[in-house]
């Protein structure tokens, strides 16, 4: 099943390979190891979720993939080339929406197109993206006039407009209410199925990871190591009540060390 999905998406998504990636920060002179020899292979058009306790290094890993930081050791390769700097083919939806307060929602979403000089030719995409995240009526609003969830949806639209090959999502739905969240999860899946990008999703929500991803990578406490990998090859749309789904969820919770809670 994974193979079938992968071949569906072979057209545009990029591959991603992490080899022995380790990263360390300096915290007041003390070395703080955050990532410990991470090995990961993501195929074209695959949807991979990263799960792990808070502060284990998930966001750090995503920054390395984005090319915003370089790892202390190891290498990251996408489509056969080493990741050295940010590239618009890899777009990040950050944990914190960080919209530019001096721009309206519309021109925040337009940012990527503007930066690459594509605004004239691809203007229509902005409307599409805004419609997709349900912010059509707020195109001319300023960020301080949005709620937290709306800001997050605007940040999602800002990423989607760029038609990425690899979409990097750092808890993109974290601030949404549960209803909007379910709707956006379905929206993300259908978007991914249509646009054939590779997706790397960080989330705290076990169900979300299992609903969206073909593979769920469970990380340990800091320094993060890959503890387990859970494959979900169920077809979309997936259902939370499905016995196989429940079984997978139990498995992931067990890997996270929360089995007593069940």
């Amino acid at each position: 099943m994974v193979a079938v999905i992968a071949s569906d998406h072979a057209a545009r998504g990029s591959t991603l390979t992490l080899r022995e990636v380790s990263h360390r920060f300096d915290l007041e002179g003390q070395p703080l190891p955050v990532l410990d020899r991470i090995n990961l292979q993501v195929g074209r058009g695959e949807f991979v979720a990263l799960l792990g306790p808070s502060g284990c290094g998930k966001s750090t890993l995503l920054r390395l993939v984005a090319g915003l930081d370089t790892p202390t050791a190891g290498s990251l390769v996408t489509d056969g080339r080493e990741i050295e700097a940010p590239d618009p083919s890899r777009v990040v939806v950050f944990q914190d929406p960080t919209l530019y307060p001096w721009r309206t929602v519309w021109s925040n979403v337009a940012l990527g197109l503007e930066a690459r000089g594509l605004l004239r030719t691809h203007r229509g995409r902005i409307e599409d993206a805004l419609r997709l995240v349900g912010l059509t009526g707020f195109a001319n609003a300023y960020p301080h006039q949005l709620s937290g969830g709306m800001a997050q949806r605007a940040a999602l639209a800002r990423a989607l407009v760029n038609d990425p090959k690899l979409l990097i999502l750092d808890e993109p739905l974290g601030q949404l209410d549960s209803l909007t969240r379910i709707a956006m999860q379905a929206e993300l899946v259908s978007l991914w199925q249509r646009s054939s990008f590779t997706a790397l999703l960080v989330t705290h929500d076990v169900e979300e990871a299992l609903l969206l991803a073909g593979r769920v990578i469970v990380l340990s406490h800091r320094p993060a190591r890959i503890k387990a990998e859970v494959v979900n090859s169920q077809p979309y749309p997936r259902h939370r009540g499905d016995p196989h789904f429940v079984e997978l969820r139990r498995e992931v919770f067990e890997q996270l060390g929360l089995d007593e809670a069940w």
Partner: peptide
Amino acid sequence: VKSAYYDIARTLGATQRFLVLKVAIPAAM
């Protein structure tokens, strides 16, 4: 200027010129 502002623009393909004129200056206004 918050470094997150630069991060966002950089991942979206901004040039140095864009970072100065469209990020740093408006944020500093």
